[in-house]
Design a binder for these strands. Structure first.
Lengths: 330, 330
DNA sequence: ATGAAAGCGCTAACAG
DNA sequence: CTGTTAGCGCTTTCAT
């Protein structure tokens, strides 16, 4: 189906339009310095020949790639939201995004390697798994922005959600509804778990509920949530859970135990994932502000590329509560 | 943190190692024609200098990009599985994958455009949304493989799952368990819905259950599934549902109605999504063979690039049943 | 086994 | 406004 001929080059277009390649180049990249007539003619020929500029040659010559590398987990629903936001944020800036996925068999190291070969000018790593040290080493080569995980290193920019605040919001909401006996189901060693745990404890204390503090070991999966429920000694009136997925396990375990939500027990998740939005789950949850996070990540990457001075390496974005059907007044 | 110096080029490595760039090039791309000693020395210097080959220059010179463009929906969980499979399939071939995401605000057209500028040699489009005509037009420029949606056009390669067979398997499974009164909840106008509907009807007839055929209008979402349940007149003993997500709605609606699964009613979903695998859902479902689909998609793309003759434009992969906890003998 | 030279498709100086 | 010249960093003949 394909024509055997090679694809047209700028030289072809130029020749066909009867101008030099330099002039054709000016037209193609909409640079000033070509007459309207020429401009029209070149564009016409380009269209007719089906010419598409060769991004690689272009970038090779201009010395810069104008590429922002994004490392993301392709199985990770939340990363999908972030990638969407990143595209939006990069939209009008004259930078392109290039994606490199982390899969079960393709580690973060390989994903990053591919991006380096593409000569990206900065890296935005979603939920980085590499060691702080190795990312910091990378940052000697190009700016690295970590999103969603709080790495502490002077060479790394970090954009993350304020997980401590997230649990403050959750507990405040429950207390406002009259709850006092509130249990937190923990996320173990997952990124963010420590902060959420701390946020829970702080908020409980702030409300004078020191004696009610109960942290039950859990994890990130539905099973973890379900298992955690069975560890709870006397049923509280409300539960804050590490994330939405674990919450679904919690909801299911409660239901099996004959406990109604939110009549008997209120439940709050974390992430505002698609799961939480399912109408029949209708999970009250804490939403991370992906729009702000992605915009800031891109802005920060560009600032580093341009060599601007930036005041702080870490940007902490406040999340917000999304009240839905799994929380109710006592 | 970054050193101000430009990144090392092959010439730097060559000079430092005391060889020509040509020789250094041979070493870097593991081509034959360099002594072990040279090889070692060059590699050593490269490592020490932190040299990374410039993919763009490399490809520019060699005239080919050895790039396979992949268009995928970043929000689409199933696409995540496919992308993972594609990376695996491309692993040992000397082609690289380059991803371009479709988001709510970044249409398939833009995603494809970016890939064209990257000089991909073939396009693999997951769940294409563009018109058959526009994809066919594209295929005049480079091979296009559509995955997961059955486009019928002589210029397009298609790799998809056999949805008709999928529902045969579902119905057969239920019949083997003693079910006869089996309802199908439909997917409306979604890709694959028509085939699944047809597969249901065919299988029912094959089992002599013509009189039991009941197709209830539904859709792809959880809500659709829940709504469909309320449309069912007299409760059957089993339900086949368009997909897993809708199945969760079905399960929830049944539960609310006091119907136990699988004791009273068996339910089968479709996709074997992560949802289905959640232990507390434990949904019996039909799994698409993503490994085969992705392997074949890559193989086919390469065959087209190499200009091989291929017997058929459409590859239909059989799915398989994943028996779990939502189906039981009558 | 190694090196010299040419050039991939394009853009950036500089001339005119 | 337009053309000429020189590469970007690499691979590929073709010599040696």
């Amino acid at each position: 189906m394909r024509t055997g001929e090679r694809r047209p080059t700028l030289a072809d277009v130029a020749a066909q339009a009867g101008v030099s390649t330099a002039l054709a180049s000016i037209v193609m990249r909409e640079a000033p310095g070509a007459s309207a007539a020429t401009r029209r003619r070149v564009l016409e020929v380009a269209e007719q020949l089906g010419y598409h500029p060769d991004a690689r040659a272009r970038l090779l010559r201009s010395g810069r790639s104008r590429l922002l590398g994004v490392v993301f987990g392709v199985q990770h629903a939340f990363h999908g939201d972030l990638v969407t936001g990143l595209y939006d944020a990069a939209e009008d800036l004259k930078y392109e995004l290039t994606l490199s996925a982390v899969t079960e068999r393709r580690g973060e190291r390989r994903a990053i390697q591919a991006l380096l070969q593409d000569r990206c000018e900065a890296l935005i790593v979603l939920g980085p798994q590499s060691s702080t040290a190795s990312l910091a080493a990378l940052s000697a080569r190009l700016p690295v922005v970590a999103v969603g995980r709080g790495l502490r290193h002077r060479a790394l920019d970090v954009v993350r959600s304020d997980d401590v605040l997230g649990l403050h919001l959750a507990v405040d909401h429950l207390v406002a509804l009259g709850h006092r006996r509130i249990v937190h189901i923990d996320g173990g060693r997952m990124p963010g778990a420590a902060e959420r745990r701390r946020g829970y404890r702080e908020a409980m204390r702030r409300h004078g509920l020191d004696d009610e503090i109960r942290v039950v070991p859990g994890g990130p999966t539905g099973e973890d949530g379900a298992a955690a429920v069975s560890l709870i000694r006397d049923l509280p009136t409300a539960i804050t859970v590490f994330n939405d997925l674990a919450s679904t396990g919690v909801l299911d375990a409660l239901r099996r135990a004959g406990v109604s939500v939110p009549e008997d027990v209120s439940v709050i998740g974390y992430d505002d994932s698609r799961l939480a939005r399912l109408t029949y789950l209708d999970l009250t949850t804490i939403a991370q502000d992906t729009a702000s996070m992605t915009t800031l990540a891109v802005t920060r990457a560009l600032a580093r590329i341009e060599g601007e001075k930036v005041p702080q390496r870490e940007l902490v974005i406040p999340p917000h509560l999304v009240p839905r059907g799994t929380t109710a007044a006592l």
